[in-house]
Amino acid sequence: MATTSIYGENPLSEDVHTHTISVLVDNEPGVLARVIGLFSGRGYNIESLTVAETRHRQGLSRITIVTSGTAMIIEQIKAQLGRLVPIHSVSDLTIEGPCVERELALVKVDGVGDKRVEALRIADIFRARPVDATTESFVFEIVGDTEKLDAFVELMKPLGLVDLSRTGVVAIARGPEGMSGQD
């Protein structure tokens, strides 16, 4: 049975793309719930979300959301975010020009002997720093874009990966301009 819903269907069903969106918000209770509720309530994807206060004096936080959808859905996401009262500005870094995206991961690997040596060697290639060590384990700190972190984690799996913690993506536009809505 063809169960097409008139609700979900995108008439111009196009390719799905990943976008990194930066949102400047009042750092007040409930604001993160508003953003997350909007995504879950309307069925949008969140691939990664980070938040921290960036402008203490003005009480502003910056939220970085990595999401995916068709062009129409991405446009909806931005418009829906834009109409939340405590949101000062919304920037789509993916389309507004080149940007830098970084993520930090803490990667715990245990092992002895050859495996331990190999883990250290690969960490060196990836410029991952050991930030904790015992005789049978390391915690590496690695910074980079999502693909680099993914690749490192893949390589650590056979070498004794036991735990992983990632920050999610933070991003900023290249060039001299700051994000609008900061003052």
């Binding site: 446009e75 909806q76 418009a79 834009g82 109409r83």
Partner: peptide, 8 residues
Amino acid sequence: DPSSINKS
């Protein structure tokens, strides 16, 4: 309301 535009 910009979110009403190009919604459906």
